[in-house]
Design a protein around this nucleic acid. Structure first.
Length: 900
RNA sequence: GCCGGGGUGGCGGAAUGGCAGACGCGGGGGACUUAAAAUCCCCUGAGGCAACCCCUCGUGCGGGUUCGAGUCCCGCCCCCGGCACCA
C-alpha cells in the first residue's frame, strides 16, 4: 500500500488547499469529485491515452513517460496528488525571474564564489552536452548560495563565427538575425531548465559593446609588440575558403568540415603566445586543482625541449644553424637537412630548377608521416661539421619542419630512426658514435638506429662520456668555441588570429601608403561590422568588397587609407569573456579593477574536455597579457577546472547526421526539467562520459515522484508534530532515522563540495528517502517519531534542492515554508547526531569474514577482543589452534589470526 | 613511439588499506486490483550443498607487501584520450 496520507487527511488537505498557493488548481477538482474512481481520474488527467498502449512512442524517448509521471498514487487509506512538473516548473521559473533571484553585487563583507560554465555557441538549440554542463554548474552554484557564498553564476553567448555565415549562405538569413534568433530560442531553453543564472549580466560577443574591447585589447597588444603581422605559410581550407589556425587543423584536416588542408602564403596577424610559453608551462604549478589530463595535454602542446643550436659553416656563405636535443651524437652527423621552406633551400633552388621542382612538389603534397616514404634531394653544397671538421653534404628533405627549431637539422643516421631510413634510401654514410651498454654496434652490422643514451665512441675528446654528460659538455664546448649554445625550443606557435570572414571582430587597423599600419584611434572604437553585406563564402573577407567600409582616412596623416578587412578568430572572444561578466555594462573600460578584484579568480570552471588545449591556453595567455597591461593582479584565471565528459547515444557523439540526437526539449516536455537534471547528474560522476539511455530515465523520475509523494502526503502530520525541541526521549527507531538523516547531510555535503560527485550525493538522498519510507511502516503513533520524520523530510527537500530546484521549492512550500529556497541555509550536520551508539563488528579469522556482532561503539578494546574471541563461530574456528594475534580495528572489525 | 586516464555483476556505477558490488536500471517473486498501469515489499555476482546453517571462488593477468589488497609496490595485457617525421 502507499505510505501516503490517510484518506481523511488527504481530503482535508485538499479541501484546505489554497489554489493560489498550490499549483494544482486544474487537476485537483477531478481528484475531489471522483476519489472513488481511478479510471476517471486517469481520464481527467488527460494522459491516459499516452501510455504504453497508445501506439508508437516517439523515437528516442521512453514510451510511457508522461503517463507514469502523472499517475495518482492511490490506496484504501491514503492519497497524494500528482507531481505536476509542468506547472511547478513554470511557476518557479516565473518567481525566480520576477524576484531577480540570482542577481548579485560585489559585497566585500561576504565570501564570493565565481561559478562559471563555458558559454555556448548559439547554434540553434541546446543539446545534452549543454544540459549536463550547466546542470553540474547549477548544482554547485545553488549549493554554494545555500552555504552562504555570494555566488556569481553568469551566462553569455559566443556569438561570432563561421556557422552564422554558413547559415547565411544556405538560407539567406543575415548572420546577425540568425544569431539573435538562436540566442533568444536557446535562452528560453536554458530558462526552462531552471538554471540559476544572473541574467542581468548576459553578454553576447556579437554586440559591438563587447567586441569593441577585443579591438581595444588588440591595439594594446599591437603597441606592446604582442600583436604583429607577418607573411607566413598558413593553413588554408579549400572548402571554407579561409585560413585556419594550427590549432584548428586536426590530422591535416579542417576541424569543422574535415576537408584536407593545404598551405598558402598570406600576410596575417599573430599574437605572440610563444613569448609566454615558458610561463604557461611553469605556472601549471599553480593549477593544482586542474585535472591531470588537461595539464598533460597542455604540456604536450607547448612541447618544451632543451637542446643546443649549432652552426655548421658553409664556405662562402653564412653558416647553417641547426637545433638538436642530442648534441652528443654530433660526431655521427654525416649530412645536413634543410626544410623545403628554409631560406637557404630556396636560395639553392634559385640555382637549380630540378631542386625548385622538388621543393614545390613536396610542399604541395599532403603527407602522412606514418605511411609516406621520406623524400630528399641533394643540393650539391657542403657544410662542415664543426666538431669533426669533416665536410657534410647539404640535402633538402620533406620531413624537416620549417616551423620547428631552426628549420634545419643535423642528420645522425646511426642514432635517429628517421635519419637512418633516409640514409639507407639515399646511401648516405652511417657512423656509430653512441654504444649501448649491452651490445656493440658497428657501421656494417647496424639494423636500426640506436636512439637511447649510451657511451660515446669515436667522438674525439668526448669519447667515453655517457650521453647525459656529453650533452652538456659538448654544448659548453660549442659555446666556448663560438659556434653554438644551449637553447630551449617550444612546439607552441604564435597564434594566428586573422580570418577572411565577415562574422567576426573587425581588426581595428588601417593600412596607409605613407604611414604603414596605423591603429584605429581608441576613441573611434568600436569598428562596427556593416550590416548590409554580401556573403559569398569564398575568397577574401566579404568586408573587402565594401568600399564604404574599406576606404578610410589615415588617422595619422589624413591621407587615403585602407581598413583591414580580416576579422579575428572567435577564440579571441572567449579568451577573456569571463572578465566581462564582472562588469558587463562598463562602457569606459573592458573591466574595472574593483569588480575583477572582487570576483576573480574563477573558483570553478566547468566545460568539455574538447577545450582542454585551445580555449584554455588562450585564456591563460590572455590573463597574463592583461596582468602585464596592469588590468588584473592575477596570473591564472581559473582556480579549479572540471572537465565534464560527453553525452553519447549508442556509444557515439550525438549528431544530426547519425540521427541519434535526443532533444532536451522533448525530455523536459515528458519528464520535466528536474528529472532531466537528475538523470544527467545521477548517471555517472561528472568527468566520465555518459551514454544516454531512455530506460534509465525511469530511475530518477521514479525517485523524484517518490520524494514528492512522501512530502505531499505527510506534510500535515509533520507540520502537526512540530519541530524538535531537544526535550524528546527518542526510541531506537527514531534515533536511527535521525542518525541516517545527519549521516546523509554529511555525505551529500562532502560529495558536492569536495569532489562534485553528484551521482553519489543523489544516491545518498535516495537511501535516506528509502529509510523514511521504511520508518512509516507501520505508521508511527508517537509525536517524536513524526518529528524525526519531519527532520528527515526537510533535510531531503533541502539536500535535493540544488539538483531539482523546482520540485524542491514546491515541496518546501508544502511543508509550510515561505520565501523560497534561495536564502535558506544548507542543512547543518550534527556530528553528535550521526554517531552510532551500537555498531556492527565484523569478526574475521585469518582475514576471512566469519561472523558479526553488535557492540556498543565506545566499548574498550580489551572488552571488544574478549567478545570477539567469545563468539561461537570464532570459537569453533579457533578450537585446537593457536591464536597468534588479534587485530582490533575500533568500531569496525576484529581479525583473529590463528595457526594450526 | 611519448605522455595521461582507465579495466569491478546483465547494464550505469559504489567502496579514508577493513563486510566488494551502495544507489539506480534491467530481471524474478509477492501484496493491492475484476484487470492492466502505477504504487509498496522481498530476492537478484558465480559455483557448491538435502539445507536461506554454511563452504569455495570472484574487482584485466602474474608476482609481492600486509593480520587484511579493488585500493599500496613490481612486471605484463587490453581499452580510451592527447601529442606525434618536433630532430
Amino acid at each position: 500500500m502507499s505510505r501516503s496520507l490517510r484518506k481523511a487527511d488527504a481530503k482535508s488537505l485538499i479541501d484546505s488547499t489554497d489554489t493560489e498557493e498550490r499549483v494544482f488548481g486544474q487537476t485537483e477538482l477531478p481528484v475531489l469529485s471522483s476519489l472513488q474512481d481511478e479510471c476517471s481520474l486517469l481520464g481527467a488527467s488527460g494522459f491516459a491515452g499516452s501510455g504504453r498502449h497508445a501506439g508508437k512512442p516517439a523515437p528516442g524517448l521512453l514510451e510511457h513517460g508522461v503517463a507514469c509521471a502523472n499517475i495518482y498514487s492511490f490506496s484504501e487509506e491514503t492519497v497524494s496528488r500528482p507531481y505536476d512538473f509542468q506547472s511547478i516548473e513554470s511557476k518557479w521559473q516565473e518567481r525566480w525571474a520576477a524576484a531577480r533571484a540570482f542577481e548579485v553585487t560585489e559585497d566585500s563583507a561576504r565570501a564570493k564564489f565565481y561559478c562559471l560554465e563555458m558559454l555556448p555557441y548559439p547554434s540553434g538549440k541546446i543539446h545534452m552536452g549543454h544540459v549536463r554542463n550547466y546542470s553540474i554548474g547549477d548544482v554547485v552554484a545553488r549549493f554554494k548560495r545555500m552555504r552562504g557564498f555570494n555566488v556569481l553564476h553568469p551566462i553569455g553567448w559566443d556569438a561570432l563565427g563561421l556557422p552564422a555565415e554558413n547559415a547565411a549562405l544556405k538560407h539567406g538569413a543575415h548572420p546577425e538575425e540568425w544569431t539573435r534568433s538562436n540566442i533568444s530560442h536557446m535562452k528560453r531553453q536554458l530558462q526552462r531548465m531552471g538554471f540559476s543564472y544572473a541574467w542581468d549580466r548576459e553578454i553576447a560577443s556579437c554586440d559591438p559593446a563587447y567586441y569593441r574591447w577585443n579591438q581595444w585589447f588588440f591595439i594594446q597588444m599591437f603597441k606592446k609588440g604582442i600583436a604583429y603581422r607577418k607573411k607566413a605559410a598558413v593553413n588554408w581550407c579549400p572548402s571554407c575558403q579561409t585560413v585556419l589556425a594550427n590549432e584548428q587543423v586536426e590530422g591535416g584536416r579542417c576541424w569543422r568540415c574535415g576537408s584536407e588542408v593545404s598551405q598558402r602564403d598570406l600576410e596575417q596577424w599573430f599574437l605572440r603566445t610563444t613569448q609566454y610559453a615558458e610561463e604557461l608551462l611553469s605556472d601549471m604549478a599553480l593549477l593544482g586543482q586542474w585535472p591531470e589530463r588537461v595539464l598533460t595535454m597542455q604540456r604536450n602542446w607547448i612541447g618544451r625541449s632543451e637542446g643546443a643550436e649549432i652552426d655548421f659553416p658553409v664556405e662562402g656563405e653564412d653558416p647553417i644553424r641547426v637545433f638538436t636535443t642530442r648534441v652528443d651524437t654530433i660526431f655521427g652527423a654525416t649530412f645536413l637537412l634543410l626544410a623545403p621552406g628554409h631560406p637557404r633551400a630556396k636560395a639553392y633552388a634559385d640555382r637549380s630548377p630540378e631542386l625548385a621542382r622538388f621543393m614545390e612538389e613536396v610542399t604541395r603534397e599532403a603527407k602522412d608521416p606514418a605511411t609516406v616514404e621520406k623524400k630528399g634531394m641533394a643540393t650539391g653544397c657542403y657544410a662542415v661539421n664543426p666538431f669533426t671538421q669533416q665536410p657534410v653534404p647539404i640535402w633538402v628533405a620533406d620531413y624537416v619542419l620549417m616551423e620547428y627549431g631552426t628549420g634545419a637539422v643535423m642528420a645522425v643516421p646511426a642514432h635517429d630512426e628517421r635519419d637512418f631510413d633516409f640514409a639507407r634510401k639515399y646511401e648516405l654514410p652511417i657512423r656509430v658514435v653512441v654504444q649501448p651498454s649491452d651490445a656493440t654496434l658497428s657501421e656494417d652490422s647496424i639494423e636500426a638506429a640506436y636512439v637511447d643514451y649510451g657511451t660515446l665512441v669515436d667522438s674525439g675528446p668526448f669519447t667515453g662520456l655517457p650521453s647525459q654528460e656529453a650533452i652538456s659538455a659538448m654544448a659548453r664546448y660549442a659555446e666556448e668555441q663560438g659556434f653554438g649554445k644551449k637553447t630551449i625550443t617550444y612546439r607552441l606557435r604564435d597564434w594566428g588570429i586573422s580570418r577572411q570572414r565577415y562574422w567576426g571582430t573587425p581588426i581595428p587597423m588601417i593600412h596607409c601608403g605613407a604611414c604603414g599600419i596605423v591603429p584605429v584611434p581608441e576613441e573611434e572604437l568600436p569598428v562596427v561590422l556593416p550590416k548590409a553585406i554580401q556573403i559569398t563564402g569564398q575568397g577574401e573577407s566579404p568586408l573587402a568588397a565594401m568600399p564604404e567600409f574599406v576606404n578610410v582616412a589615415c588617422p595619422q596623416c589624413g591621407g587615403a587609407g585602407r581598413r583591414e578587412t580580416d576579422t579575428m578568430d572567435t577564440f579571441v572572444d572567449s579568451s577573456w569573456y569571463f572578465y566581462r561578466y564582472t562588469d558587463p555594462k562598463n562602457d569606459t573600460a573592458a573591466v574595472s579593477a574593483s569588480a575583477v578584484g572582487y570576483w576573480f579568480p574563477i573558483d570553478l570552471y566547468i566545460g568539455g574536455i574538447e577545450h582542454a588545449i585551445l580555449h584554455l591556453i588562450y585564456s591563460r595567455f590572455w590573463t597574463k597579457v592583461m596582468r602585464d597591461l596592469g588590468l588584473v593582479a592575477i596570473s591564472e584565471p581559473v582556480t579549479q577546472l572540471l572537465s565534464q565528459g560527453m553525452v553519447l547515444k549508442d556509444g557515439a557523439v550525438m549528431s544530426k547526421s547519425t540521427g541519434n540526437v535526443v532533444e532536451p526539449d522533448e525530455v523536459v516536455e515528458r519528464y520535466g526539467a528536474d528529472t532531466l537534471r537528475l538523470y544527467v547528474l545521477f548517471e555517472a560522476p561528472p568527468e566520465k562520459e555518459i551514454d544516454w539511455t531512455d530506460q534509465r530515465l525511469e530511475g530518477p523520475a521514479r525517485f523524484l515522484q517518490r520524494v514528492w509523494r512522501l512530502v505531499d502526503a505527510e506534510a500535515t502530520q509533520v507540520k502537526a508534530a512540530g519541530l524538535i525541541d531537544g526535550e524528546e526521549d527518542w526510541n531506537e527507531a527514531e534515533a536511527s532515522l535521525r542518525r541516517k538523516t545527519h549521516q546523509t547531510i554529511l555525505r551529500v555535503t562532502r560529495d558536492i563540495e569536495e569532489r562534485f560527485h553528484m551521482n553519489t550525493a543523489i544516491s545518498a538522498i535516495m537511501e535516506l528517502t528509502n529509510e523514511v519510507y521504511r520508518s512509516l511502516e507501520p505508521r508511527p503513533e508517537r509525536p517524536e517519531a513524526w518529528r524525526a520524520v519531519g527532520e528527515a523530510v526537510e533535510a531531503i527537500v533541502l539536500l535535493i534542492s540544488p539538483f531539482t530546484p523546482h520540485a524542491a521549492e514546491e515541496m518546501w512550500e508544502i511543508l509550510g515554508q515561505r520565501g523560497g529556497l534561495n536564502r535558506v541555509e544548507w542543512p547543518s550536520y550534527d556530528p553528535a547526531m550521526a554517531v552510532q551508539e551500537i555498531v556492527t563488528l565484523v569478526l574475521q579469522v585469518n582475514g576471512r569474514v566469519r561472523s558479526r556482532i553488535a557492540i556498543p561503539a565506545d566499548l574498550e578494546e580489551g572488552e571488544v577482543r574478549r567478545l570477539a574471541l567469545d563468539d561461537e563461530k570464532v570459537r569453533s574456528l579457533t578450537l585446537g589452534r593457536t591464536v597468534e594475534r588479534v587485530v582490533v580495528v575500533p568500531k569496525r572489525l576484529v581479525n583473529v589470526v590463528v595457526t594450526e
